[in-house]
Design a protein around this nucleic acid. Structure first.
Lengths: 214, 214
DNA sequence: ACGTGCTTGTGAAAGCACGCACAAAGTGGG
DNA sequence: CCCACTTTGTGCGTGCTTTCACAAGCACGT
C-alpha cells in the first residue's frame, strides 16, 4: 500500500515524543486518513493491535519498516546534477531510512569531478559500471526532459528496475520496471485548477444570488 | 481531473513538432493512459473532437489551459530557501505555464537579503504583507518539518487557500484549503516496497520450484 | 470473578474508476 | 450519391477502494 510510508512517519513522530501505544483513531488523524481504512491497511500485515488498548508504536514501526523493505539498505544513483539533483543529494532524510546515495552522474564535463554532498560527480558514461559496482537498485532522474528517456533506458538495461523520474516526460519502459513520476509543475497546475474551480463556483453563486435579488 | 496537466504537456510536445491534429489513441499512448479514459476525460470538458479525424491540437491546448486556469497568472510564494527552495526558484518551467514566483521567504537572518533567481530573499515576518501586496494565491513550503505547520497556518490566515508542501509532515488546515504534498522520501519508500515485493516473489517462486524438484 | 468501557478486526454496502465494445458521426474515394 | 473507413462519445459490466457499523476481545476497577 502507498500509505504505509505515511503511517510510518506519523509513528516515528509519536516515538520521538515518547508515546508507547496509539489507537487507530489517533494515528489515523495524525496521518490524515479514516480510522477504518488504517485498521484495514494494518490488518493486511497481520494482527499487531490489542483490542481495548491500541497498537504498540515501536513494534508497529518495526513491522512496517520490514514490510516496506527498509531493513535492508538501498543504493540510489542520481543522474542530472542540476539544482534539483544537488538538492536531493544534500537532503539528509534518506540515510536514516535505509537509502544511501551511492553515485552522482552528469553528462556535462564541467560538472564531472566536482564534489557534491561529499561525493564526486562522475560522467554518465560510467552508469553501467557504477550500477554494477555499487549495487544500485534505484535510479533517480533529474535531467532535462530531452535526456530523461535515454537515461531511463540505460538504467533498465543495466538492471535497475525502480526509477524515480523528475523530468517532465512520460518514460517508456518494459513491463516489470517500476517508474514513479514527480512533476513539480503538474502539482502547481492541479492546485491552480482547484483554486479556479473554487473561484468559478463563488462567481456563479454570486451571480445567481445577484439574479435572485433582481 | 488530475490527468489534464499530463495531456497538456503531451499536446504541447506535439505542437512543438508541428502536428495539427491527433487521435485519442495517439495522444493516450503519449500520455501513458488508456484511450477510452482519455476520451472520457476530454468529453467532460465538452465535445472538442471531430469523429473520423481526431482532436485539433491547438484548440485542445487552449481548452485545457482554460479549464486548468492557466490563462490567468498565479503568484507563488516559496517559504524555506534551502537547497530545494532554491532549486524550485531557479526552475524555469513555471513562468511559461502561468506561474510567477512572486516572493522568497526564510526565517534565517543570514539568508535574508541574499539574491536567489533574481529575487531578494525576505524575512518570514513579511509573509502577510507580501501575500497582500503581490496577490499571492499559492504557497510553497520547503522548510524543515518542524516549521511547516506554522507557515501553513500563517498562509491560511493571510488568505492563501492553495498550498504545496514539501515538508514531511501532514498539515492541519481548515476545510476549503487545498494542500498537496510531495514527499521525496515517501516516493523512494514506495519504490523500495515494490522492489522488495518483486524480490520476495522471485524468492518464493524459486523456493517453490526448488521444492517441486525435490 | 464479573461487569463496564474501549478498541480492534472485518463483513457488507456504497461509491468510484477503469476499460470494453459499440453506435453515432464525420471523411474521402469512386 | 453511396459506401467503406476512421474516430469520437458513451452505456455498461467489473473489480477495487472506501466507509459504515458491529461483533469479538482485552484491560481495569470493584
Amino acid at each position: 500500500m502507498a500509505r504505509l510510508p505515511i503511517y510510518l512517519r506519523a509513528l516515528q513522530a509519536l516515538q520521538d515524543r515518547g508515546i508507547l501505544t496509539v489507537s487507530s483513531e489517533h494515528l489515523a488523524s495524525a496521518a490524515g486518513v479514516n480510522s477504518a481504512k488504517l485498521r484495514k491497511d494494518l490488518s493486511h500485515l497481520g494482527s499487531y493491535g490489542t483490542r481495548g488498548v491500541g497498537y504498540e508504536v515501536e513494534y508497529l514501526v518495526y513491522q512496517i519498516s520490514r514490510e516496506l523493505g527498509l531493513t535492508q539498505d538501498w543504493a540510489v544513483a542520481i543522474v542530472g546534477i542540476g539544482n534539483l539533483g544537488r538538492a536531493l543529494a544534500n537532503y539528509g532524510g534518506f540515510g536514516t531510512r535505509g537509502f544511501r546515495i551511492a553515485a552522482l552522474l552528469d553528462a556535462d564535463p564541467a560538472m564531472v569531478g566536482q564534489s557534491v554532498a561529499s561525493l564526486d560527480v562522475r560522467h554518465i558514461d560510467n552508469l553501467e559500471a557504477v550500477v554494477r559496482s555499487e549495487g544500485v537498485s534505484i535510479g533517480v532522474i533529474t535531467t532535462p526532459a530531452a535526456a530523461a528517456q535515454g537515461v531511463a533506458t540505460r538504467f533498465v538495461e543495466a538492471g535497475v528496475a525502480s526509477i524515480l523520474n523528475f523530468a517532465p516526460v512520460v518514460l517508456n519502459v518494459p513491463d516489470g520496471v517500476d517508474v514513479r513520476k514527480v512533476d513539480l509543475s503538474i502539482e502547481l497546475q492541479i492546485l491552480a485548477f482547484h483554486a479556479q474551480r473554487r473561484a468559478d463556483g463563488d462567481g456563479r453563486n454570486a451571480e445567481r444570488a445577484g439574479l435572485e435579488l433582481t
